[in-house]
Simulated assay, not measured.
Amino acid sequence: MATSVKPASPEPQGPKPVYTTPVWSVPPVSKTPPPVSPYVSPPETAVPVKRRPLVAPPTDQPPRRQLMVGEFILEYELRRSTRRSIGFMIDDDGLRVTAPKRVSIAEIDEAIRTKQHWILSKLKERRERRAARLEKPPVEWIDGAQLPYLGADITLRLLVGGRNRAIYNPNTRELWMTLVPGASEELLKNRVQTWYQQQAKVLFEERLDVYAGRLGVQYHSFGLSSAGTRWGSCTVDRKIRLNWKLIYFSLPLIDYVVAHELSHILEMNHSQQFWDTVGLIYPEYEEAKNLLRKRSQELPVLFP
Results as ranks from 00 to 15, higher is better:
residue 107 E to W: 01
residue 191 R to C: 12
residue 137 P to F: 10
residue 35 P to K: 05
residue 71 E to C: 05
residue 207 R to Y: 05
residue 84 R to W: 03
residue 283 P to F: 06
residue 45 T to F: 12
residue 89 M to T: 07
residue 254 I to Y: 05
residue 254 I to N: 04
residue 85 S to M: 09
residue 20 T to V: 11
residue 228 G to P: 06
residue 16 K to I: 11
residue 120 L to G: 00
residue 74 L to N: 05
residue 237 D to N: 14
residue 286 E to H: 12
residue 57 P to I: 00
residue 190 N to K: 14
residue 222 F to P: 00
residue 55 V to G: 02
residue 34 P to L: 15
residue 134 L to Y: 11
residue 201 K to Y: 10
residue 17 P to N: 08
residue 37 S to G: 04
residue 54 L to H: 12
residue 252 P to K: 02
residue 271 S to R: 05
residue 90 I to V: 11
residue 88 F to Q: 09
residue 163 R to H: 15
residue 177 M to D: 00
residue 143 D to I: 03
residue 170 P to R: 05
residue 254 I to L: 15
residue 86 I to F: 04
residue 280 L to T: 14
residue 101 K to F: 11
residue 37 S to L: 07
residue 204 F to S: 01
residue 91 D to G: 07
residue 287 E to C: 01
residue 127 R to D: 15
residue 153 D to Q: 14
residue 298 E to H: 10
residue 120 L to T: 00
residue 103 V to K: 10
residue 201 K to R: 15
residue 46 A to C: 09
residue 215 L to K: 02
residue 206 E to K: 10
residue 57 P to Q: 01
residue 291 L to E: 15
residue 158 L to V: 07
residue 27 P to W: 09
residue 288 A to W: 03
residue 7 P to K: 01
residue 6 K to E: 15
residue 159 L to N: 10
residue 158 L to N: 07
residue 43 P to W: 12
residue 277 T to F: 04
residue 276 D to G: 14
residue 125 E to P: 01
residue 153 D to V: 08
residue 260 H to L: 10
residue 121 S to H: 13
residue 63 P to R: 08
residue 300 P to G: 08
residue 277 T to S: 13
residue 27 P to Q: 09
residue 163 R to N: 14
residue 77 E to P: 04
residue 278 V to H: 04
residue 264 H to P: 01
residue 114 T to E: 15
residue 199 Q to Y: 04
residue 240 I to D: 00
residue 291 L to Q: 13
residue 257 V to I: 13
residue 285 Y to E: 12
residue 49 V to T: 13
residue 52 R to D: 10
residue 280 L to W: 07
residue 27 P to H: 08
residue 141 W to D: 00
residue 42 P to T: 06
residue 182 G to H: 03
residue 275 W to G: 05
residue 269 N to W: 09
residue 7 P to R: 00
residue 115 K to T: 03
residue 277 T to R: 15
residue 83 R to W: 03
residue 199 Q to L: 06
residue 172 T to A: 14
residue 163 R to V: 14
residue 196 Y to V: 02
residue 298 E to N: 12
residue 133 R to S: 07
residue 58 P to Y: 09
residue 244 W to V: 01
residue 200 A to Q: 01
residue 136 K to I: 13
residue 177 M to T: 06
residue 223 G to C: 07
residue 75 E to C: 11
residue 294 K to N: 00
residue 262 L to D: 02
residue 200 A to P: 02
residue 127 R to E: 15
residue 72 F to I: 15
residue 278 V to L: 07
residue 95 L to D: 02
residue 62 P to W: 01
residue 33 P to Q: 07
residue 42 P to R: 10
residue 105 I to W: 02
residue 206 E to N: 05
residue 269 N to F: 07
residue 50 K to P: 00
residue 150 L to P: 03
residue 297 Q to W: 01
residue 279 G to H: 12
residue 44 E to M: 11
residue 277 T to W: 04
residue 294 K to R: 09
